[in-house]
Design a protein around this nucleic acid. Structure first.
Length: 427
RNA sequence: GGAGAGUUGGCAGAGUGGUAAUGCACCGGACUCGAAAUCCGGCGAACCGGCUUAUACCGGCGCGCAAGUUCGAAUCUUGUACUCUCCUCCA
């Protein structure tokens, strides 16, 4: 029976948990109900186990008897039959309690870290640090989709014809720019930052989606193939983190880092009307993802490092950005602490999210059963982290807007020139 | 899609109705200056409950999973998942 938040934490400090989850929008009554069911369930388990113990004792005697017809043995058999009925009743009652408990348990979000700003939404996010100078233009900067369409490297109209809204065709230098970007990112992560390069499955089972916390709460945000129940991954975090699901790792193998380029598929239910133009909010987009498995005591250190790894992508591309720490209400379901990287978008005159780095502590590890054996032989859950390193489509958008020139051409960032076959300008 | 086989503790591998052999590994001890070998003993995943400082102790569960038959199931029945092999098909 798996949980989300460590059940012992909730038992030990119910008021603290209530207070913390309240900052994430969870009604304390939910926690109250959880505790009630938790206790009732444990009592029920005790009862069932008591019956089972009696039964085991009786059947042991029966098994050792020579003569099953002995009236004494027959009496014991009768007793066991009665016990079986008792067990059935008690067991069904217990299962029901467990199911109710579980229903709540798997829907409670992770406990936020104490360092988070408290607040209901993104307005309470706090800027941690700033990098780079915003570009200055002696003309009015255009939106990336205008630039891309004018150059013939992005085609939203034809994509709409073929697939509907929120899809795009990249063409010529646009396609090459996308490819250059993700190759650049993958090389950085694998050659310099120590990540294993992975190409994972893009279709996963419901159980896998549960492991990373997308299910059962967020089924409406993804595409699930009706015939098989398989889901198109909304992020590579899902297949990467579940890589070790159900396994017990060796302490010496931690930490370990994975990275992968994959498409991400999102239904964007509920975001109608937002970012309807351009590359910002697509049903399908490429993303280079980073995932880490770490020992509990190292996970926050690893989060800082991972955030810097993502930042390094933007630094080398010369893209102005800042790092913000998400407030309690803005932090994702599975995460205890999340840093977002937001890149400067000149036409919109604001920062836009381009990466999100999260420490999920043991929240996902509990769901996906990812553990490690310590030197003393005991077993504990690992901590999992994930971060974008970074969203490729949005990076294309950022480059088009930040590197646009008065004549409508695009200067290729120095770091990308080798990946563009030496091309320095897109025109 | 069709047919067949398999799924037991870290690994190997027994066990066709009576409550998980054995080997290797591992842990403790003996022997030794120490180690190896040997000998003795122990331990057989993980999980849950009770009691808790506890990886100690007691109990439950536990032979892919689920349900059924039975006083009792790794063993019988049914369903299901996954893996492998062959056929068919296909990038």
């Amino acid at each position: 029976m798996l949980a989300l938040i460590n059940p012992k934490t909730i038992r030990k400090d119910p008021e603290g948990v209530k207070a913390k989850l309240k900052t994430r929008g969870v009604d304390p009554a939910e926690v109250e109900e959880y505790l009630k069911l938790d206790e009732a369930n444990r009592n029920a388990i005790g009862q069932v186990e008591g019956y089972r113990k009696q039964k085991n004792e009786l059947t042991e005697v029966i098994s050792k008897s020579k003569d099953k017809r002995d009236p004494e043995i027959q009496a014991k058999i009768k007793q066991v039959k009665q016990l079986n009925a008792d067990i059935k009743t008690a067991d069904e009652a217990q299962k029901e309690l467990a199911a109710k408990w579980r229903y709540i348990a798997i829907r409670l979000p992770n406990l936020p870290d104490d360092s988070l700003p408290v607040g209901p939404d993104e307005d309470a996010d706090v800027e941690e640090r700033l990098w780079g100078d915003k570009p200055e233009f002696d003309f009015k900067p255009k939106a990336h989709w205008e630039i891309g369409e004018a150059l013939g490297i992005l085609d939203f109209d034809r994509a709409a014809k073929v697939s509907g809204a929120r899809f795009v065709y990249y063409k010529d230098a646009g396609a090459r720019l996308e490819r250059a970007l993700y190759n650049f990112m993958l090389d950085l992560h694998t050659q310099e930052q120590g990540y294993h390069e992975i190409i994972p499955p893009y279709l996963v089972t419901a159980k896998t989606m549960f492991g990373t916390g997308q299910f059962p709460k967020f089924t409406e945000d993804v595409y699930t193939v009706e015939a098989t129940g398989m889901t198109l991954i909304p992020t590579a975090e899902v297949p990467l983190t579940n890589y070790y699901s159900g396994e017990i790792l060796d302490e010496k193998d931690l930490p370990t880092y994975f990275t992968a380029l994959t498409p991400s598929f999102r239904s964007e239910a509920g975001s109608a009307g937002r970012d309807t133009r351009g590359l910002i909010r697509m049903h399908q987009f490429n993303k280079v993802e980073m995932v880490k498995f770490s020992k509990p005591e190292d996970s926050y250190k690893e989060l800082e490092k991972m955030t810097l790894d993502a930042q390094e992508v933007l630094k080398r591309l010369g893209l102005a950005h800042h790092v913000i720490v998400l407030s309690t209400g803005d932090t994702g379901f599975s995460s205890a602490k999340t840093y977002d990287l937001e890149v400067w978008m000149p036409e919109q005159n604001r920062y836009r999210e381009i990466s999100s780095c999260s420490n999920c502590l043991d929240f996902q590890a509990r769901r996906a059963m990812i553990r490690y054996r310590k030197a003393d032989g005991s077993v504990d859950y690992v901590h999992t982290l994930n971060g974008s390193g970074v969203a490729v489509g949005r990076t294309v958008a950022a480059i088009l807007e930040n590197y646009q020139q008065a004549d409508g051409t695009i200067k290729v960032p120095d770091a990308l020139i080798p990946y563009m076959g030496g091309q320095t300008v897109i025109k």
